[in-house]
Amino acid sequence: MTARERVIKTLEFDSPDRAPRDLWALPGVGMLRSEELEAVNRQYPSDFAGPGGRYGPSSVSRGNPAEVGTYVDDWACEWTVAEVGVVGEVKNPPLADWGRLDGWTPPWELLDNADLSGVNASCAATDKFVKTGTHVRPFERMQFLRGTENLFVDIMCQPEEFKELCRRIHEFNLRDIEMWAQTNVDAIGFMDDWGTQQTLLIDPELWRAIFKPMYKDYCDICKAHGKYVFFHSDGHIMSIYPDLIEIGMDAVNSQLFCMNIEEIGRLFKGKLTFWGEICRQHILPFGAVEDARAAVKRVRSALDDGTGGVIAQCEWGVRDPKENIEAVFEAWLEENEKETT
């Protein structure tokens, strides 16, 4: 079974030979612990690959997002980074003042000058499952552009400027998704962090009114082109799982350990593939190897009965012990071996 077949069987609940592997590493791991990262990737090769294309060069970005200090991203948002290799925070949102919206446009040059000419060849050259990321993160994009507190007020008051900003970002996102949908990638991914530790950041009804229709449009494009849809959100998002399933998402990465994993299994197993994860707030950074192994068993027991629906994913934080990451993948192999014996 090739890696691509394995992932597809997982997504289709068609009894893969084992849970496919997908290790995420924060930038700092690659920068500061590259040998360890390479060793783990050698021992536990990923079943996923990237597509090899690139977006067009930005006309505004400058600086290095992985270094301490400030940098400006492709959307002209100024970030401050406090620790090497750890994602920073936007401290100078360019549209904090609605007066700047009139002349503002999304960075179309990223799409207009994108070079995807090698994507189909790279898809053909690998037997791994090719998933692309995108710029699509409408909620977070508006946070970065407006500032978080401003955006929350916008969501409640819904001024015309907010609606216009939504429209422009959505237009960009539709073209972004459309662009990738016309390639031979297997899946398209997008994201937004929606949860606190306990619940959704905003009222689920507001989420359904404002953001769900956007996500549905993205899913529709993907489905029309035969692509799988992958989505990531931090936090407790149990209240919108049914919506994510309804609009056609195939795989969702969320902080399972913020939520009731067993309840998630009871409600959603077989309807959605769980794209990881293992608790990155407590177990991976501070737990013992035994804790990491037990966490895998818990996920396996709750969400995976051997027919698929779970991807063996975890995120390697910059100070997480390598042994805990290795333990996750060891435990997944053992769990899958139990299934086959």
């Binding site: 929350f152 007020v153 969501i155 409640m156 950041l201 009222d203 507001l206």
Partner: peptide, 14 residues
């Protein structure tokens, strides 16, 4: 009690 959300709290604070 998770009966209201972050934006509600922000509006109240305003």
């Amino acid at each position: 009690e998770n009966k209201v959300f972050v934006p509600d709290l922000l509006m109240a604070a305003k």
